Simulated assay, not measured.
Amino acid sequence: MDTRTLIRKTLIQMALQRARPGTGSRWELIRRRPSMPSLPNLAAILGPIPWAVVGALAARHYMPERATQDLDIAVLEKDASEVRGRLQQAGFRYVGAAWVSPEGVSVDVLELNAPWAEPALQAAQGNRDAAGFPILPLPYLILMKFEAGRMQDLADIARMLGMAASDQVDAVREVFRRYRPEDLEDLESLLTLGRLEWMGPEGASSPSIDERVDPDDQELA
């Protein structure tokens, strides 16, 4: 067992031992989402190149939001050179490890070469928010975070799974069967943690994410 897998399994086991029903955020607070920052029009800049929003701004599509002012996107590794050229032509500057738009928005471009990358980005083109941004579909976002394996990623996975509908969870399982069959047990453990977090005080499950968002906020979801 490699070190990353050992750490992941240890963290999951520790969390399962300590988890108690109803320890998540209060449902009424989840209904209030802060406005998204003003984002650059990447659709116009990147043109036909397949890309998708990932990171915190994608996760807000599936769970309560974590504060962020940055935009993380994923592209195929084979398209990375053209993406960099298009960003430069649009006036972006490369600062540190991210691109900064003329308006000062930080854009982190992740270059994917995993076997699931191309179907994930293709699926994202049909999974757009009201602003027209392609959002990485939940199964692939969870898979990407699982492979990253950081503590925050594992926590995000549990929260997203805990708020997902049964058909969404089944779709996640199917993606894991295809690409990470050896990790299905850990996926189920993270689902258990997520369900416990959102369970009501009497053991009742919480409403789905769509039921928690105010109608006035739908354009941000």
Rank of each mutant, 00 (worst) to 15 (best):
R177H: 11
G104W: 00
M63P: 01
E219M: 10
L121P: 08
A58G: 02
E211W: 03
P34K: 12
G24F: 04
W27N: 10
D210Q: 15
S101D: 14
D129I: 09
P137N: 07
E82N: 01
G91T: 04
L187D: 07
R150D: 08
Y94V: 03
M163T: 08
I45G: 09
P201C: 02
D156I: 02
P181L: 12
L121Y: 15
K9E: 13
N41M: 07
L42P: 04
A80Y: 11
P37E: 00
V109S: 00
A155F: 05
A59T: 13
E103M: 09
A114K: 15
D72C: 04
D210G: 08
L196D: 07
G149Q: 13
A19M: 12
G24D: 07
G22W: 07
M151W: 05
S81L: 11
L39F: 04
E77D: 13
V107P: 01
S101K: 01
S166L: 03
M1Q: 08
R178G: 13
A114W: 12
R150H: 12
Y179R: 06
Q122T: 15
Y94D: 06
D214S: 11
D186Y: 05
L141D: 02
P50R: 04
M36S: 10
A15S: 13
M36H: 06
A19C: 14
R31H: 11
G203P: 01
D214A: 14
Y140L: 12
M163A: 13
L39C: 05
P37Y: 04
D210S: 14
V53R: 10
A120T: 00
L190E: 05
L190N: 09
G200E: 12
V213H: 11
Y179K: 00
A117Y: 00
